[in-house]
Nucleic acid binder design. Structure first.
Lengths: 258, 258
DNA sequence: AAGAGTTCTGAATCGCTGT
DNA sequence: GACAGCGATTCAGAACTCT
């Protein structure tokens, strides 16, 4: 069964992203934001041995388990193929990651024919300190912004908005802003943070303002805590979110209704 | 013929990087810096500056021409295989690129078994502006810093130096500095810039100070204008540079003798 | 000589229309 | 499809010109 375009506006779908994406018609969305699992490969036992903190906030969720780069690539490729199919010719797509996964994402996108417009660097004002002191503090995440193919015309770009966000006078590709915390951070029924890598509202605000128009349909197939749809709605865009985890979906629904 | 380790210190070799690297013994260098062609894929059409009668002198050098991503990947993979072979177990390697090529470099490195320590982002204070305002100004280049394999021990890291360079209080992975210009920029016999992509001395100073020790051997197999060796020598490190282009080699020799 | 104003350029995957 | 031509609009920093 294929959903109608009208029927997919402002929905949160609980389900597997590949299964649910397959139900969407071709060329129906204007903007896609993907915050995939990062494949951190954290040697957690080694960190435990130092006995500093039990987990150092390392991501250790069930959805971040992949056995190999090949497994990870296969998942990402499948996801991107469906995303590319549902993009309008005028749509653009953002993905975010760290050095653990962003190079794979970018190379796969280029191999699939996506045309990269920019890399944008989120510089965190309050990164997790590197207490081992054997490498640089990792204070950044990288976003890739791309269109469906070389020569694709008509994607949205709000130059005035971009100008406000960059460090330079033109909108440049460096955004300095804090990580998600405080009251913005969703809590689960247990009072602990609901999601380990919730993205800040301001990050999504910049993405959506710069690269979409009012009334556009914004898709997030790996919605997590639903920041994408939450911000899209607040900016007069429509959203469609897909998330497999029931607890996250419950969190999203509560967030959207408040 | 294999060169002795003593024989390769402080040399500039004119020749094909793959051929010359193959002559080196295993595990002989402490640090590698690679500034490969970026495969910019610029349109044939020149970008016009509209307030003056001039064109942007984009990079159209022969050394940046590849038929496809596949061709590009083949070149990079061959280069990295040899680099990995000549790295000591305690060595580390830097590569630099932009969104055109850095994702491919990073993914290839991961696939080959390199272990990424950081991505470091060079934020340019004076980037080329985005004339037409259809995307973000591309104000950054990305460096990847890696060791030979997961669990490799003993690579150099000067935490004090790193602390001075980052934007945060700890040495973080964002470096803000201007592009190479002025008297630092090498000129050819015709008075024009010798090389279209010369890297600033300060960038290499940071790389070498942070990730090598005095007396270490620093290898640059794609030397260009020789900034790597020039800076290494000034910091009490030994260097080995390989460069195919005779004009660039002449420029390097003159630069080193002055 | 010093200072003010002008020109030039940098790893750029940058437009739209009409023929 | 390709290509020519029009035209909208950018910035830091070094080099250069003029006073």
């Amino acid at each position: 069964m294929t959903l109608t375009v009208a029927g997919i506006r402002n929905q949160v779908i609980q389900g597997d992203c590949l299964v649910e994406l397959a139900k969407l018609p071709d060329e129906c969305v204007d903007l896609i934001f993907i915050d995939p699992p990062y494949f951190l490969q954290l040697p957690g036992k080694k960190l435990l041995r130092w006995n500093v903190r039990s987990e150092v906030d390392g991501v250790d969720d069930e959805w971040d388990k992949f056995d190999s780069f090949e497994d990870y690539d296969r998942f990402i490729r499948g996801l991107l193929i469906e995303c590319r199919r549902v993009m309008k010719s005028t749509a653009s797509i953002w993905v975010i990651g760290t050095y653990h996964n962003i190079f794979r994402l970018g190379a796969l996108m280029q191999d699939m024919g996506f045309w990269i417009l920019n890399d944008v660097h989120w510089v965190k004002t309050n990164p997790m300190p590197n207490w081992l002191g054997v490498r640089f503090t990792n204070a950044t995440e990288t976003l890739i912004w791309a269109v469906r193919e070389q020569g694709a015309k008509g994607h949205a770009f709000d130059k005035q908005a971009a100008r406000e966000f960059g460090m330079g006078k033109i909108g440049d590709n460096v955004w300095v802003l804090p990580i998600c915390g405080g009251s913005q951070r969703l809590k689960g029924p247990d009072g602990l943070k609901l999601h380990s890598t919730q993205k800040p509202v301001e990050l999504l605000r910049r993405v959506i303002l710069c690269s979409s128009r009012p009334g556009d349909l914004v898709l997030d197939p790996v919605a997590g805590t639903g920041t994408t749809g939450f911000v899209a709605a607040s900016l007069g865009r429509d959203y469609l979110m897909i998330e497999a985890n029931a607890k996250y979906v419950a969190g999203i629904r509560e967030r959207l209704s408040s």
